[in-house]
């Protein structure tokens, strides 16, 4: 369904992605792990066309994104939902207006109907009675859940999660993990998640890929990743400072 072939991307001479190859099947939950600054978010933004590769192709259902007109790309994006690391809620709108934004733009539903759907989506992410509040009045965990409600409002086929649990306490983070699993089970979506939280990865993935030095160095089921012999992956999943992966700014 999603196929990335030989993706290269540089920013001001810094070669972030150096030939990423990755495929995600329909209904699959892929988790991409990797250190901070390894280019995971850059990779995710290529899937929805927010960034274009310098070289290589991103294909969705066989269609190369770079060949699509802006109108066709927007049509495709309506089938995607994305949860941002910072939640990226529109701070000039209430919670329900945020959740219903896509519906307001792309359907002929009345404001009452959109509000009703927004309340229903908020209930799915276990938020009740906050629809008239502003994003600035919410906690980090609540903002993430509103972001998730907005991502599922248009009933997408693909959900992209950018660091869904970063900055949250362990209990709230686990709640988000449960919601991601629930979304997959109830909505039957394909999902790609970017994280460096291994607990999150093991809980939500049916396949894990590790991005290091701009390429995918290993991938497999959660059990295969747990038992991998790749020293880079082992160091990362076990969280050791000492190993083949050099920690930036620390001379070990």
């Amino acid at each position: 369904m999603i196929e990335l072939t030989d993706i290269h991307k540089s920013f001001e001479g810094h070669h972030v992605l150096r030939g990423v190859n990755l495929a995600v099947e329909k209904g699959q939950s892929l988790v991409v792990i990797g250190g901070s600054g390894s280019g995971k978010s850059v990779l995710l933004k290529h899937i929805i066309g927010l960034l274009q590769p310098d070289k290589g192709t991103v294909a969705i259902n066989g269609k190369d994104l770079s060949q699509l007109s802006q109108e066709r790309l927007n049509e495709l994006r309506k089938r995607f939902g994305m949860l941002f690391q910072s939640s990226a809620l529109f701070d000039s709108m209430t919670v329900w207006e945020n959740v219903g934004f896509g519906l307001k733009r792309h359907t002929s539903l009345s404001a009452e109907q959109i509000r009703e759907i927004a309340v229903q989506k908020l209930r799915m992410v276990r938020l009740v009675g906050i629809e008239d509040e502003m994003p600035s009045e919410l906690s980090g965990g609540m903002r993430k859940r509103v972001g998730l409600a907005r991502a599922i409002a248009m009933e997408p086929e693909v959900l992209l999660y950018d660091e869904p649990t970063t900055g949250l306490d362990p209990i709230t983070a686990d709640t988000i993990n449960d919601l991601i699993v629930k979304m997959r089970e109830e909505l039957d979506v394909t999902s790609v998640t970017i994280t460096h939280n291994m607990k999150c990865a093991y809980k939500i993935a049916d396949r894990i890929a590790m991005l290091y030095n701009g390429v995918i160095i290993d991938q497999g089921s959660p059990d295969e990743i747990k038992n991998t012999s790749n020293p880079y992956v082992r160091q990362f999943i076990e969280g050791h400072a000492v190993g083949p992966i050099a920690v930036e700014g620390i001379g070990i």
Binding site: I48, L50, N74, R77, G102
Partner: peptide
């Protein structure tokens, strides 16, 4: 970016 993902120019 969020606007773009919501198919809005």
């Amino acid at each position: 970016d969020a606007l773009e993902t919501l198919a809005t120019d």
